[in-house]
Amino acid sequence: MTGNMPFLVVGILFFLGLYSILFERNLIKIAIGITLLEASANLLLIVLGYRNGGSIPVFTLAGEVETMVLPTPQALTLTAIVIGLATSALLLSLIMMLYKHYGTLDVREIRRLRG
């Protein structure tokens, strides 16, 4: 019996991610926060497609099992994970470059562009 537990986890992950983006100073931790946000969104999609006691949605299993979890969210999640991977990679490489240029990972000091 899963009930609303997964949604609670999604919420916790979401706010953890938001918290670390808003209140952490280290750029890497901000990147982690973004990854947490992504994870919460992905988890939300998966949970939405879950049917109690369902099995994997594979075409050849049709008829053999009673319920299947919904396939669409899984496809969506896969896509979202790939996108998330690209984002994280780019984010981390930008952080690396920032460190090279600014010599710091403190987000408060990266503010040359203002006004």
Binding site: L22, I110, L113, R114
Partner: peptide, 17 residues
């Protein structure tokens, strides 16, 4: 207004939220 464009990333995100 210029002071609001402080260049602080976290403040920007706070605006969005």
């Amino acid at each position: 207004l210029g002071a609001l464009h402080s260049g602080r990333l976290r403040v920007y995100i706070a605006y969005v939220i």
